[in-house]
Design a protein around this nucleic acid. Structure first.
Length: 127
DNA sequence: GCATTGACGAAGG
DNA sequence: CCCTTCGCCAATG
């Protein structure tokens, strides 16, 4: 039943222009979606698992579109190396990230994840 | 087309 | 120990 029209290409289209090598970006989204509930990881860890540990910034930039992506990417589970919610301000509301984390059992204090190491999830190892 | 910025990270002073 | 600088690469002005 090949009635499958070529529609809905997994992941892509970060930009309506259709530019951008979605390779790197897509990988980031893919990994981010695989983050177990109640766990967090860092931008650098994701970048490193992709073979671009130096491009942690790109991971963060990728997250910028992650919120609108479908299915949405749990960007709230991704924080910086210090466990700080550096990207909370980029959500719909500054409280969204903190709230989502708290909902999954992760405590956030002063924009920082409590017991970050304990909740840390390394895609390069676990994946 | 060049300059600045950015949800980071590691290294240097 | 805190602050500054560099690297990374793409988007935006």
């Amino acid at each position: 039943m090949p009635t499958k029209k070529s529609s809905k290409p997994a992941i892509k289209q970060i930009k309506p222009s259709g530019k951008t090598d979605e390779n790197f970006f897509s990988w980031v989204y893919d990994v981010a979606r695989q983050i177990p509930k109640g766990r967090v990881t860092s931008y650098g860890a994701i970048a490193a698992s992709l073979g671009a540990k130096s491009s942690a910034r790109m991971v963060g930039w990728a997250m910028n579109g992650a919120q609108k992506l479908k299915p949405k990417v749990p960007a709230h589970r991704v924080v910086n190396r210090n466990g700080m919610l550096s990207g909370k301000m980029h959500f719909d509301t500054p409280d969204a990230m903190e709230k989502l984390l708290a909902k999954e059992g992760i405590k956030v204090k002063n924009d920082q994840v409590v017991d970050f190491e304990k909740h840390f999830w390394d895609p390069a190892i676990e994946l």
